[in-house]
Nucleic acid binder design. Structure first.
Length: 111
DNA sequence: AGCATGACGAACA
DNA sequence: GTGTTCGCCATGC
């Protein structure tokens, strides 16, 4: 873990850190914003590495349909949902409710 | 070198 | 709505 992916990971972290409280985005959206469109899996991989960084709110990143696909990777599977609900995001059956309302698109709102 | 897996996504049936 | 298939690319066997 030294040079090449460093840039990609760094970019992912930077975007994730910019996600406003109470909002969420998706792996594919971040990938698209970074220009690595189609490589949503790499974003997920980056999150896996970001897992230890408190600066990166990985719980605000879900898949395209608002499912907490990564909850299993947290310290506790319940932690992700609790953190989201603590920010005012309603979660039901591992899925974000009103997903279109809390969705945050860097291309659209960050600009 | 190939093959399987994965915090994904889109297209299609 | 669900299930399958393919593309994506880093990692591990």
């Amino acid at each position: 873990m030294e040079d090449k992916q460093h840039t990609f990971f760094e970019n992912v972290y930077e975007v994730v850190k910019l996600i406003p409280k109470g909002r969420v985005t998706s792996y594919g959206t971040i990938a698209n914003y970074l220009g690595t469109k189609g490589s949503a899996r790499m974003v997920g991989w980056a999150m896996n590495a970001a897992h230890g960084l408190s600066d990166v709110p990985a719980h605000r990143v879900v898949n395209r349909i608002g499912v907490l696909s990564g909850k299993n990777h947290f310290s506790s599977p319940n932690e992700m949902q609790e953190r989201l609900e603590a920010e005012g995001i309603k979660v039901d059956d591992d899925r974000i409710m009103d997903f279109d309302e809390v969705f945050w698109d860097p291309m659209l709102e960050l600009l």
